[in-house]
Design a binder for these strands. Sequence first.
DNA 1: AATTTTTTGTGATAAAAATCACAATTAAAT
DNA 2: ATTTAATTGTGATTTTTATCACAAAAAATT
Lengths: 213, 213
Amino acid sequence: MKNSITDRVINRLTLYHCILADYEIRGTKVISSALIADLLNIDDSQVRKDLKLLNNIGRRRVGYEVKSLKTSIEEALDFGKIKNAFIVGAGNLGSALAKYDNFKNYGLNILALFDTDPLKIGIKVNELEIFHPNKLADLAVRLKVEIVILSVPNAYAQETTSVLINAGIKYIWNFTPCILRVPATIQVWNENLAGNFLQFTINHSTRLRSYET
Amino acid sequence: MKNSITDRVINRLTLYHCILADYEIRGTKVISSALIADLLNIDDSQVRKDLKLLNNIGRRRVGYEVKSLKTSIEEALDFGKIKNAFIVGAGNLGSALAKYDNFKNYGLNILALFDTDPLKIGIKVNELEIFHPNKLADLAVRLKVEIVILSVPNAYAQETTSVLINAGIKYIWNFTPCILRVPATIQVWNENLAGNFLQFTINHSTRLRSYET
DNA sequence: AATTTTTTGTGATAAAAATCACAATTAAAT
DNA sequence: ATTTAATTGTGATTTTTATCACAAAAAATT
């Protein structure tokens, strides 16, 4: 039998990590799977199985050691690995993401922003310079950047993507509500914020609608 | 047999909607499940089954009508229903979200921001006033607001949540990397951005690690 | 020392989700 | 009119994910 760290598991691990970070600050030494599960409204055996995948061992009748568990999640999820990225589209969202200091804790290192607006070029956001996209390919090679956070207006999403592809970008974290056409070698993660919001409100406010077949 | 619109399905529907919006603008009248599936890298029968849940019917040998399909997703996901919300924490991210005009298309209507910083109070962001949180409970009742977008610094996440709970807020869209303790009557959606990023990079850059048991 | 309680670890089971395979339909081509 | 090709619709199957149930371990209590 094969146990792998799937997307689902990773997602939960990031949430466990948030809990552990909190408990570490508050000085708690040990935490139980039941407490983690309770905070996330999931099954406690699920938590134990997830942790087991990372080869964490708890102490029966005690729980898991907060600090080592947190470290182990950070190792499994490569918090320590520096992931250089550009932000393309220095509008409100792009600029806010450039200033979002929490990314650093997760190894995401933003090096520069790009925007076609002549008024923005040369300006700095959080110490990071805004360049014209025609500088992107060159800078990506020189700085070894393979990740782009895309936050351009919808109408420019696809054409900007072409620029990114030509520049050798491999990973696009897409904050636009557009589905990008990319070759199979390029990975896209759609962070469709407004869509997520609907998911949230529908599932919880109006409850699940069911249909009989 | 019961077929329900689960979280998973809703998530895909929001993505289908992005595609349909694009094809509608481009003047395409009809679209096939295979094309949608291809753009999202999923199975085409999956698309058809999802659409069937909303009672959409395609025409064999033709496909689905773009406009009516888009409308039907909007109806199923309640795009038309106005969902009033406050943004609590008028920092970079909160302010950017206040300016993010895409939310309106999905029915999300932001009415005001809240922040404890005296220098920010009274200032307007995108026509929306910033108030002190001690005004929140009163305004929430008067404006019938049950949704809060939470974007305060991590250290204040939990105590701010208490304020929200006392103010009668029912839905918290949590942009902080903190797991909030709330009573069961309150729904939280964790939009753990940095965590999502890890999910993206790990699963796609280093591929899945597998363990033999 | 024995008992009780708590918590992990995990096999078995159930539930949910995704994929496969192909019949049915129908537009287009011959 | 017939054939071909494309596309939906859907039952069957497989795969994945989550839950259940309980044994094993060990700390705490008696």
